[in-house]
Write a protein that binds this DNA or RNA. Structure first.
Lengths: 341, 341
DNA sequence: CTGAAAGCGCTTACAG
DNA sequence: CTGAAAGCGCTTACAG
């Protein structure tokens, strides 16, 4: 069975509507754009014509004339695997979507290459396809994104890796304090050999949580050398946990920089005969669905992922509308106690 | 801290490049578009000018002039919850992305309202924002999408609910045969009280799998009345399983229309003291990561989700390029035996 | 309140 | 191979 290109009908233009309604193109344009300076009966006549012809304005022509695309890019420099694998993104995206849906903008998700955006991504962002961008999950090496805001407004999810002089807008939590918070809970539980599974070192949030862990241990006079790096995936968390157990079989606590990694870590602990939390207490991060999906509920540092999404979207809309806004918004975290610690 | 709109630099135009290179706009355009009818030295000069000015063609102007947006919509009429929750979508999307990435098109994901697209979605699709669309997870009530192809080329993931006379393009598996295949396995295992947990009745794939289940049972002279409907989520699968057990405590086999639902069903079976597969054998559908994520590996009907994605993308690209293509592509399924049956 | 006209930044026959 | 000119479908001052 081969193709037989269906005859696409020609879309009606502003011109056609004007003829149909017996007015000028300017007037139709005004009606379409909701200008107040049009007499009521003309509005009626034009809308009727629009209805009859099933007119939908051509986006390209509109954008060319008024320099607005009414589109926003959601840039996620992660491969699809990780994007879909970590519920954190789902939460963030729902927050963003909820706000954008109620606006006149459409949201265009762009999964970008981690570490260095492709020429295609750059051309997309710079070629007038979108009016603004939200960048989530930023890595070092993604410096392009921090310069992007000289061309279009940008809001980051999480303080960008190298905040440049301009000062990029962002929504974040205090990851260092949050890391300390989770770690302190382990200390308060009486744990003394406390390890951490950190996120990739090219991400600011990972570095900050790691620093928080170290600070809490040092403040308590405990050793802060048990570090393994994961990649924010379940498998990465498992691998890191194995490494830690090999180095220090007697560890009794671990602060893990994401719930998804904690899931992997806990299954390794159990398969190696450690009881959680009795033998090893585990504190995660995010309070994402991953924290409650397994058999043992994960005690974790909650960050308001969905709210971060809505704040990012609101901030960008304000920027686009020229409404004065805060450029940095730091949301609170809190400890959520479940079974694992 | 309030906003201080960074001064956005004016993007250089074709005009500027022409001036810089000392040629006409037409010539610059030809170079940008890779026309062969340009002398080598002029190409060099123009490219140098482009480089110097950091020129990126304006998408709106380009689209208006040549009536191509170089963008494709991936329309998924599901809420974010389900989109992110079911690994099936992740697989499909990876298949699509892989193909589109290597093309000149960008992919714009549009989560649409299930059952009836919003005015915004319709205007987006009809307003010249994209050159074509891929529609995945189609429901009855989404009839708009089946008429869309009179305006732009469309490829469906899964035979659309009401294939109209035009004949929409689609990539699918033979869901009915696949449903029978999975059910037959339960019959061959000697099971005699075989239930099904089907998908929502407003989805063609769900109906077809259900029909396959019924056909297999009837061909074997078995009762085909144990039906519960799920919604393709884990929780929905669990609820359906409870319902079935209440109605028929003695059931010994169940064909579930998705692995994710099977996951929920199995946990209910176990919590009600049924051993899987000894007491109740379970066959799932998809062979998605959900089939292997739990404690008991799920025996399932494999459908090549990722390949379906790549085929859909290729088909659409062919349609866009005017290359003759099959309009219907049905990929093979097979049974994958694990622990649950 | 309404229309004529210029302009947005490209592409593309049409000549040469 | 190259350029002048028209045109893509809108918006938006500018007059009236």
């Amino acid at each position: 069975m081969t193709t037989e290109v269906p005859t696409r009908r020609e879309a009606p233009t502003l011109e056609a509507v004007a003829a149909e309604a017996g007015v000028s193109r300017s007037t139709v344009s005004r009606v379409v754009n909701g200008s107040v300076h049009v007499s009521p009966d003309v509005v009626l006549a034009v809308n009727a014509a629009i209805e009859r012809l099933n007119y939908i304005p051509n986006r390209a022509a509109r954008s060319l004339a008024n320099r607005r695309t009414m589109a926003i890019a959601l840039v996620v420099p992660e491969d699809a695997q990780r994007f879909f694998g970590d519920p954190f993104f789902s939460e963030i995206m729902q927050g963003i979507t909820n706000v954008i849906e109620d606006s006149d903008y459409v949201l265009n998700l762009q999964l970008a290459r981690p570490t260095a955006p492709s020429a295609k991504t750059i051309r997309y962002l710079l070629g007038g396809n979108v009016d603004g961008a939200i960048v989530v999950s930023h890595h070092s090496g993604d410096e392009f994104f921090t310069t992007l805001d000289s061309t279009i407004p940008v809001v980051f999810g999480g303080r960008p890796f190298h905040p440049d002089a301009h000062g990029n807008s962002f929504v974040d939590v205090d990851n260092e304090a949050a890391g300390a918070l989770g770690t302190q809970h382990l200390i308060d539980l009486g744990r003394r050999r406390i390890a951490t599974i950190s996120g990739p070192s090219n991400m600011q949030a990972a570095l900050d949580r790691h620093t928080g862990w170290r600070r809490a241990l040092e403040d308590a006079g405990l050793d802060a050398s048990l570090v393994a790096t994961g990649d924010f995936t379940m498998a990465g968390g498992a691998a890191a946990m194995r490494e830690l157990l090999d180095r220090e079989p007697a560890l009794d606590g671990v602060f893990v920089a994401s719930d998804l990694m904690a899931t992997g870590a806990i299954s390794v602990l159990r398969s190696r005969g450690r009881r959680v939390p009795e033998d090893v207490a585990v504190v995660g991060f995010d309070d994402s669905p991953a924290a409650t999906s397994g058999e043992v509920g994960i005690t974790t540092v909650h960050q308001p992922s969905r709210q971060m999404g809505t704040e990012m979207a609101r901030m960008l809309l304000d920027l686009l509308d020229g409404v004065p806004t805060e450029r940095e918004r730091v949301l609170p975290t809190r400890l959520v106690i479940r079974d694992s610690a």
